[in-house]
Nucleic acid binder design. Structure first.
Length: 567
RNA sequence: UGGGGCGUCGCCAAGCGGUAAGGCUCGGGUCUUUGGAACCCGCACUCGGAGGUUCGAAUCCUCCCGCCCCAGCCA
């Protein structure tokens, strides 16, 4: 029934569109738009909106426009325009021919404003910004009308034209819609729709010194493009009467329907552009694409796939309730995607050397390993084995608790795809007492990991041949914030006080299976028993391989330990 | 004390007068050459609260409580 990857679980916006279609509204067209302001990088919250808008269009055979809401030259930059397009495309969406900018409509918008003035529905106000604020009243008290409110149409026309020509300085005049200074809805108290900004615009250059504001621009841009359903976030709900007012008063090609939904919040991170910018500017992270950032570029560098993010956006639903989704769901979506697609390799992050004392010196075997047990078509590979190998430090305990069934003195375990080994001796650092090397024996009959006599072992360990190991740097990431809600009030300090000091752990002498030497960027791997890893887009080189941990595997042993139930 | 929204399991979220879907998390189990994956079982006698209407209410009505948004010449 559903041709896309969406679950088919309906939500209120989908229902509205279905009803509109049944009622024959908009002649059966569904045209949506994603309207970012180019003043920052896209994050996972934007992904929700992108998936919604582009997804709806795809689902109903319509189209979705990408429109830059670039009406404020003071805040916007070309750098962001480029990154936004790259991110939307990377997520898997295509706006085709329909790339627009609000600034494309500056001429039309100006004409509409003139019309409004002609109808006596807009006027040039010459109050200062502070005065306008005072006149606006408060939440509980009505505003007062500006002394300039009743200028004649001709005077307004003349002044507005002169504003456009650049005869005035910033702030000297503004154009306001004439609505109702006593409205309980603050947005309707004669909202400002044009302001003077003597500043070049990244697209229109110095053609304009007056720029329209959001409330005037957005609805008209929607109407000009023939948008049918204008989906935005909850904070614009109060603006809807104004959106409708503008389109009702003016003769426009159509009157799109504004529909509001709740924006996405995620635990253990922050989502506001302002806060993300602070993390970047204060050097808390390495940049907008730091793998710990909830930005699209950060998630991408972390190893998230477009599929996993789309699936996540589909699962979280769309509603009007403010909510905070657990980060665990995002991680689940990544694991689910990568489990079926990622080729498996062995990699030892914290190496402990093991000498197999009864294994012939100088002998090297190549053992066959399955690339992905979830997908046999991915084939097999050969892994070199020798007398000296590395295993994970965490896979050995000298005095193990009851439920630890990995390696310990006298215990036998399986080396994945290799042999059963038994620990017969351990060597400690004389000074620190730390175990630095293990001596084990192997059973030649268990080659490949099967025991002909049916003998069982409780654990299977990953390992890497010491001689053939690929040395690599591996970066382990964790939540940026320890607290699920870093913005929680009280407890003192701002959100930066709640940073997770261990959000990044860099490991330098990791030993990886040699096959990983020709890892390619934008690819992903499972390091068996550990998690999913990807070459770092920026820092990975053949000479100095760097891998990022995208997400750990589910780890019930770690969970037992944490819960104190390991004994 | 103005206006606009929202309150269903730890977190999301269906439900729209006929007797509480689903996912994540969590707990238990089967299986396993990843303590992974897969599979099975369990997890709201109750829907912010109190009244009311009805044979019957999460759904309708009334009152109350809580949370979010709005006083940019930002979007």
């Amino acid at each position: 029934m559903n041709t896309n990857e969406s679950s088919g679980a309906s939500h209120f916006i989908r229902n509205i569109i279905r009803e509109d279609l049944e009622a024959g509204k908009n002649d059966g067209r569904v045209i949506t738009r994603f309207p970012p302001e180019p003043n920052g990088y896209l994050h996972i919250g934007h992904a929700k909106s992108i998936c919604l808008n582009f997804g709806l269009a795809r689902e109903f055979g319509g189209r979705c426009h990408l429109r830059f809401d670039d009406t404020n030259p003071a805040k916007e930059e070309v750098e962001y325009i480029e990154s936004i397009q790259e991110d939307v495309r990377w997520l898997g969406f295509d706006w085709g021919e329909h790339l627009y900018h609000a600034s494309d409509y500056f001429d039309e918008l100006y004409d509409y404003a003139v019309q409004l003035i002609g109808m006596g529905k807009a006027y040039v106000d010459s109050l200062t910004a502070e005065e306008i604020r005072e006149y606006r009243g408060t939440l509980t008290q009505p505003g007062r009308e500006s002394p300039y409110r009743n200028r004649s149409v001709d005077e307004n026309l003349d002044l507005f034209e002169r504003m456009r020509r650049g005869e005035f300085e910033d702030g000297e005049h503004v154009l306001r819609a004439k609505i109702d200074m006593a409205s309980p809805n603050m947005n309707m108290r004669d909202p400002t729709i044009y302001r003077i900004r003597r500043m070049p615009h990244h697209r229109t250059g110095d053609k304009w010194v007056i720029y329209p504001l959001y409330d005037f621009t957005h609805c008209l841009s929607d109407a000009i493009e023939g948008i049918t359903h204008s989906v935005c976030t909850l904070e614009f709900e109060d603006h809807r009467p104004l959106y409708d007012w503008v389109l009702d008063v003016l003769q426009t090609p159509c009157h799109p329907q504004q529909i509001e939904f709740a924006r996405l919040n995620l635990t253990h991170t922050v989502m506001s552009k302002r806060k993300l910018l602070r993390l970047v500017q204060e050097g808390v992270v390495s940049g907008w694409d730091d793998p710990r950032m909830p930005t699209i570029s950060g998630l991408r560098r972390r190893g998230y796939t477009p599929e996993s993010i789309r699936n996540f956006c589909d699962r979280i639903g769309v509603a009007k309730r403010n909510s905070v989704v657990e980060f665990a769901l995002l991680e689940y979506c990544l694991r689910q995607d990568l489990n079926r697609r990622a080729p498996r390799y062995m990699g030892v992050l914290k190496p402990l050397k093991v000498v197999i004392v009864n294994y012939p010196e100088g002998l090297e075997e190549n053992l066959e390993a399955i690339n992905n047990p979830e997908d046999i078509s991915m084939g097999t590979r050969m892994v070199p084995f020798s007398r000296e190998i590395y295993i994970e430090r965490d896979d050995f305990m000298e005095n193990p608790p009851k439920k630890f069934y990995r390696l310990s003195p006298g215990k036998e375990v399986r080396l994945r795809y290799a042999y059963f080994i038994t620990c017969v001796d351990l060597i400690k650092d004389e000074k620190t007492g730390e175990v630095v090397e293990l001596h084990c024996t192997y059973d030649p009959a268990t080659r490949g990991g099967d025991s002909p006599d049916g003998r069982k072992v409780k654990a299977t360990l990953h390992w890497v041949s010491a001689k053939k190991a690929l040395n690599a740097e591996v970066r382990l990431y964790d939540h940026l914030f320890t607290q699920s809600d870093p913005e929680e009030e009280g407890a003192g300090g701002d959100f930066l006080a709640r940073l997770n000091p261990r959000s990044l752990e860099v490991l330098h002498d990791c030993k990886l299976e040699p096959g990983l030497a020709d890892a390619s960027k934008e690819s992903f791997y499972q390091f068996e028993r550990l998690g999913y890893f990807c070459p770092d887009i920026k820092d990975f080189t053949l000479e100095h391989p760097v891998f990022n941990r995208s997400v750990t595997l589910r780890d019930t042993w770690a969970k037992l330990q944490k819960a104190g139930k390991a004994d």
